[in-house]
Design a protein around this nucleic acid. Structure first.
Lengths: 166, 166
DNA sequence: ATCGTTGCAAAGGTTTTGCAGTCCA
DNA sequence: TGGACTGCAAAACCTTTGCAACGAT
């Protein structure tokens, strides 16, 4: 039942970062905001706002959708959360960002699984194109779409894949 | 008043491709569909469905939004049009795809301008990661976000930029 | 006590859908 | 002619907003 020390420390660290951010920006430290932050860092996958809202509702905390969206914006601003736009559907995907090294995504059009990968060349491309076209590049989004060749990838397995496929 | 031969030929070619696609897929060759195709290939920029709908409405053709969306889907399927998701807003951007070499996009977060660029390394990344993670990659989306350093980039110049910025 | 934040529901913008009428094959 | 396509409007979807009540500072 003991919580691993590392988990605890990370949670403390994150709460601290968020608290400092809120103070600096003269925003209130409400319990709802910290509950949302905690729930996000408990999860390990990519998620959307509605899913997060449902998970919170099922548990202890009764927060409204408006608060979820508001808090996600705040967490994005202080870089504790990253917001993604995968596929062509309207729904945004989010993921925790703290201490996760920068990476890009590859998505299976059949089963909807999201894989993460790194390639240093993308940084090179970023600086080269920025210099070339006289841009100060702040960030990028690279998504590879394809079909995973593993046998455990049944066609149209889940809703997420359908949405990504449109 | 003479239409340049190349333009004419390209238009004929495109109509032919679309017609063949429609036949193969047992879809009807309606005037609306060809009017939409033609309007798209007259334009040189990125556009969204609503803009296209308005342009058609202002001109000869009275098509409905539903038909515009339906036709854009068809044109995407036969690869005459590419659909993009820039920024975090809900609106999709489209662009004509025939005979335009594959490229990626860089977007100014101030003025919303969209620049296109090519870098062969992205193809290399695509095949390397595909091999590595056992994926059959069909396409990718790379968008660089930044601030253009030119003097003619006033802050928050237009609506598009605001939307990209959220 | 103040004033930012919450919850709820209603509005917002983009895209899809249902249905009756139209028209291509 | 018949089934697919169109137009219209309504619905669906995700997200934001208005406002009264609440609560952190």
């Amino acid at each position: 039942m003991a919580i691993p020390a590392t988990d605890w420390n990370i949670n403390e660290e994150i709460r601290e970062i968020f608290a400092t951010y809120l103070e600096k920006n003269k925003q209130r430290k409400t319990p709802e905001r910290f509950a949302i932050l905690e729930e996000i860092y408990k999860r390990d996958d990519h998620f959307d706002a509605e899913t997060l809202y449902q998970h919170l509702k099922e548990k202890e905390y009764n927060v409204s959708r408006a608060t979820v969206y508001n808090t996600l914006d705040l967490l994005e601003s202080c870089e504790l959360v990253t917001k993604h736009q995968f596929g062509n559907n309207a729904t945004h995907q989010y993921e925790k960002a703290y201490r996760y090294k920068q990476h890009d995504h590859m998505i299976c059009l059949n089963c909807g699984q999201v894989l993460e990968f790194c390639d240093p060349r993308i940084q090179q491309i970023q600086s080269k194109i920025g210099d070339l076209l006289n841009f100060e590049i702040s960030h990028h989004s690279l998504v590879l779409y394809g079909i995973c060749q593993k046998e455990h990838c049944p066609y149209m397995q889940n809703e997420q894949a359908k949405e990504i496929n449109n």
